Computed example of a mutant assay.
Amino acid sequence: MSKQAFHQLVADLATQIAGRPLDADLDHWLNTHHGAGSPTYEALKRACIGGVAEGWLCEREGGGIRYGRVFKAEDALSRFSVDVVDMRDIAGPHHTHPGGEIDLIMPLEGEATFDGRPAGWCVYPPGSAHFPTVAQGRALVLYLLPEGQIQFSK
C-alpha cells in the first residue's frame, strides 16, 4: 500500500471518530467495529507492515524503539496526527496525552501486548499518561493524537 492509500485508510477511520470523546465508550466502539480480525484492522496492519518494509514508516530509531510521525494533524485526518512505533519487549519514554491518545495494537511476534492490552484498540482519555510498554514479543502500534499533542516527561 502506498503512503497516499494509507493516508486515505486512516482518514476514513478518523472521520468516523471525529468529535467523539476519547473514553471507554470509544475504546469499546473501536474494538467492536474495527477490532482485531476486522477488515479495517487487517488493512491497517498490512499497510503498517508494508510501510515499515518499504521504509516510510518507523524510519527513526532511538532507545531500542523504531518510530516516526507519518502525518501531521490536518483537516483530512480530522485533526489527528498519525505515528507508528515498532517495539519489542520494551518500555518507551513516559509521556502525557493532553487531548488523549488512540492506539491500534498490532502484534507481530509472540503474544505481544501493549500496556497489557492484546491486539486491537486502546483509548487513553485527555490528561492521561504512561510509559508505553510492549511485552511478550514485538508489536507495531499506530497512534492517533488530537492536534498531534504529546508531552514527554523530563
Rank of each mutant, 00 (worst) to 15 (best):
T96W: 03
M106N: 11
E61P: 00
I102M: 12
V123W: 01
T133K: 11
G116F: 01
G137F: 03
H95C: 05
A73S: 14
A91S: 15
G110W: 12
P146G: 14
A139N: 09
G127Y: 08
A76L: 15
R79L: 11
T96L: 13
L104A: 11
G120R: 01
L140S: 06
L108S: 07
V141I: 15
I105R: 11
R66Y: 08
D83H: 15
I105C: 13
L142Y: 10
D83F: 11
A129N: 04
T96Y: 04
E74N: 14
G63I: 04
P107A: 14
P126S: 04
P132I: 01
E109L: 14
E109I: 12
K72R: 13
H94I: 05
G62W: 07
Q136A: 15
H130Q: 11
Y143Q: 06
R79D: 13
W121P: 07
V85W: 08
S128T: 08
V141H: 11
D75T: 13
L142E: 04
A91E: 11
E109V: 13
R60T: 03
P118S: 13
V141R: 14
G64E: 07
V141Q: 10
A73L: 02
W121V: 07
F131K: 09
E74F: 00
R66K: 14
G137R: 06
G116D: 05
